[in-house]
Amino acid sequence: MLTLAFDTATSVATSALVRDGELLGERSSRAVRVLADAEELLGHAGAEPGELTRVVVGTGPGSFTGVRMGLAAARGLAFALGLRLAGISTLDALAAGAPGALPVVDAGRREVFTLVDGMPAAVAPDSLRLGPGATCVGDGAVRYRDVLEALGARVPPRESELHVPRARFHVELAHEFVDPEAVEPLYLRLPDAEQAR
């Protein structure tokens, strides 16, 4: 079983190649480069795209354009190879990489994407209810460090790898594989034009 996973929803894109539960390689770069990363990962493993058996993609929430680039690439790849696809929430993958921590992704417009009572939501960072000793990770946690620390949370140093999604965790969480078009983006927000109506 050869699984390729990638997530381009946040400022740092991630990709990983896993064979039967063994991590063969992982890359971080930008959304526009993610397929070049995937090709490098396959090259180091001496494999080619046609040998992939499963594809996993991060579905956001994050940058709308980034989410769509990942989904478009994943759907195109799965379609072209006749594979099934799994979608994993970027928040869940972040949380899996930092057990016990709350994932906080920068959502722009002075908001963050995070889990509220276990459900993904877009909220103002100062409205978060954080338990004592809470740890926050993600680019939103880094950006709103002051706000979150004032609420009693701990935010690891900016360079910590806990702040970026790592695609190996997408693979770990992927259990349900479906038709490529059945994997939906997690926007959590309507387009501006709809909101204004």
Binding site: L35, E48, A73, G76, F79
Partner: peptide
């Protein structure tokens, strides 16, 4: 572009 790159890449 993302979808096209992926489709092209799949078959090189």
């Amino acid at each position: 572009l993302s979808a096209a790159k992926a489709v092209a890449w799949a078959n090189r």
